[in-house]
Design a protein around this nucleic acid. Structure first.
Lengths: 341, 341
DNA sequence: CAACTCGATGAACACGTGTTCATTTATACA
DNA sequence: TGTATAAATGAACACGTGTTCATCGAGTTG
């Protein structure tokens, strides 16, 4: 029991079934020709001995492991954890395993992606940071597909899957206008993600298309991301011009924080302003917020990302794809009803 | 450029440095004896060629990869995502890589742990579900250390790291009594985690030690976990006896939901009752909740878990350890101040 | 100067699998 | 019956690394 437990190999199965090791490999992989009865015999032997293939040896031989590298940052952020959950779920569902690394700087990202190549991963999914060109080239040379989520960059042979920020901005703008808003604000944080910046530009553009002049749009840049950033932005908000009626937030955390910050100053939505945030996180649905949000279709994002990886695995040199996933407006109260009693 | 890119091996470095491949291995691994000047020469050659070791081959040879398997469930839950973030951070910090799998049933857990052994992981961290005995034995035979977080079971050779639920219950009870509470409620959900059940028992015991009779404690079991479960429990709460003054929740999500549910019925904390929940998630700190919570020391939990793995790697047959990590009471308003203006 | 010790080095093996290639066996057809 | 064809099988190689063992040379001691 305390002996090193010689692990059983394909050779053991071969001996037990009275065939050669090559036959075992064929019986279990459905590759090559094999007699049906020997196949069942080998499978029975494998099951009896509890044989399981050594993934390291398999990967070494195939020059490819069944791992998929996932790059994330700030996992505890609600949207990112939902996305990560969806990715891991989809990765397992398709027969891979998720090698997850958290990075907080581009330097870490570089070291991380190097380790991915050392594990001969079948693909890399980047949800945070900008993949450095040198490492991407390394992956490309190893024929390792790379896909980015919620960002679009012009990198040869790298695909991107992205929620449709333009569509989201139009949906939000139309909703604001339906409510009769004519003054607006855009809330983001300094050093925002690529997606955040894009949403801001799309919002400007959507307002412009609706003949709303740029002087009617107030830009608010919080000092930091997340709930705390939004709250601080609300507390520091310049009210000398009054409150804009339509406020659009780059993400849900900022929106929740902004709302709570405004409540501390005696304002609330929708009584005093209207609020729409990106990312339909669970918290936005809760009674204390009931925020109108733009829902990102996480299952679709994950599914498309893996489609890209598998597609590029088959034909590595196809042109880079950019897949936009539609978003949908989830209309809620955009404000809680508090202290009913 | 589109050619398969022959990856560079230790043999290439050896040729380039004019030595044998064995010397390369010694130069890079600091194992065995080697002349200092040849070592620097080899390292220079390796750097020049951009050599990086193939982890699959290395793992195959060593019978051990530098992967650590992590079993989680429902990642998007705030506390679990925080824990996962801490684990991944610590795993990377100690030179390993995180192989993350999500499981929702014990059957999935079994398949998952089997895959871990196939990858020859250096350790397994289980944060969800009960490790099945057969698989644990398999890991033990492969000399793969297994550690569980936030559960304690009597499994030979398996270590556990757990927040001190007893201490937490005592802290909460003392706080309740200081406020003058004399009727209490315990909120959990049906099919709770091991930790949740344990917290309930500890709460009972702490009240008993404080001479509070069991008839003064109301057991509330929500039909499901999370915010929705807590909210539904509050909406269905039997008020014929009035509200208990001290309500203790198995986790933060339940507590937030319960609070919002009570608000919908016109009650609020701390005006009408006092509320303490386990898990100091970010949301509990927000203005709309400001919940008094028991903080789990996530960095300590993660650090201790990896200590267990490394320790058992050195001496695999040492007695199973049970490490309790202290919790701390974070006193907040246990109720928001709303609509100040 | 001879014998001995010790540090450095390279050849060879082991890890466990997938796949190619040659060989053997069974089948079909003239 | 003899031959051509196809299917089934096993031997051998490749994947890239760590480690053991024998060898070799230099330095030390008597």
């Amino acid at each position: 029991m305390s002996k090193p437990h010689k692990s059983i190999t394909a050779q053991d199965v071969a001996d037990h079934a009275g065939v050669s090791r090559a036959v075992v490999s064929r019986a279990l992989s459905d590759k090559g020709s094999i007699a049906p009865e020997t196949k069942t015999k080998v499978i029975a032997a494998a099951r009896e001995l509890g044989y399981q293939v050594n993934f390291l040896a398999q990967g070494l031989n195939r020059k490819r492991s069944q791992l998929i590298g996932v790059v994330v940052a700030r996992i505890k952020d609600p949207f990112r954890s939902s996305l990560l959950e969806g990715l891991i779920h989809m990765i397992q569902r398709r027969g891979y395993q998720a090698l997850v690394t958290e990075v907080n700087s581009d330097k870490e990202l570089e070291a991380t992606m190097r380790q991915f190549t050392q594990f001969r991963v079948s693909g890399v999914i980047v949800t945070s940071g900008q993949p450095p060109a040198t490492l991407v080239n390394e992956c490309v040379q190893f024929k390792i597909p790379v896909v980015g989520i919620n960002r679009e960059l012009d990198i040869p042979l790298v695909d991107f899957v992205c929620s449709d920020n333009q569509q989201g901005a139009v949906l939000a703008t139309d909703h604001f206008l339906k409510w009769g808003c004519h003054r607006f604000a855009w809330l983001n944080y300094a050093g925002s993600t690529w997606a955040g910046v894009q949403r801001g530009l799309a919002f400007e553009q959507a307002l412009e298309s609706a003949k709303v002049g740029p002087h009617s749009v107030q830009q608010v840049i919080a000092e930091q991301d997340g709930y705390e950033g939004g709250e601080a932005a609300a507390l520091a908000f310049d009210l000398s011009q009054g409150l804009p009626q339509g406020i659009f937030c780059a993400n849900a955390q900022l929106a929740c924080g902004f709302l709570d910050g405004m409540r501390q100053r005696g304002f609330d939505a929708p009584k005093d302003f209207h609020l729409i945030g990106f990312d339909n996180t669970p918290q936005t649905a809760q009674y204390s917020y009931r925020l109108t949000t733009l829902n990102q279709d996480i299952p679709a994002l994950c599914s498309e990302a893996l489609n890209c990886l598998e597609s590029r695995n088959k034909s590595p040199n196809q042109a880079a794809r950019l897949i936009k996933v539609p978003v949908s407006l989830v209309v809620r109260y955009t404000s809680p009803v508090i202290n009913l009693g």
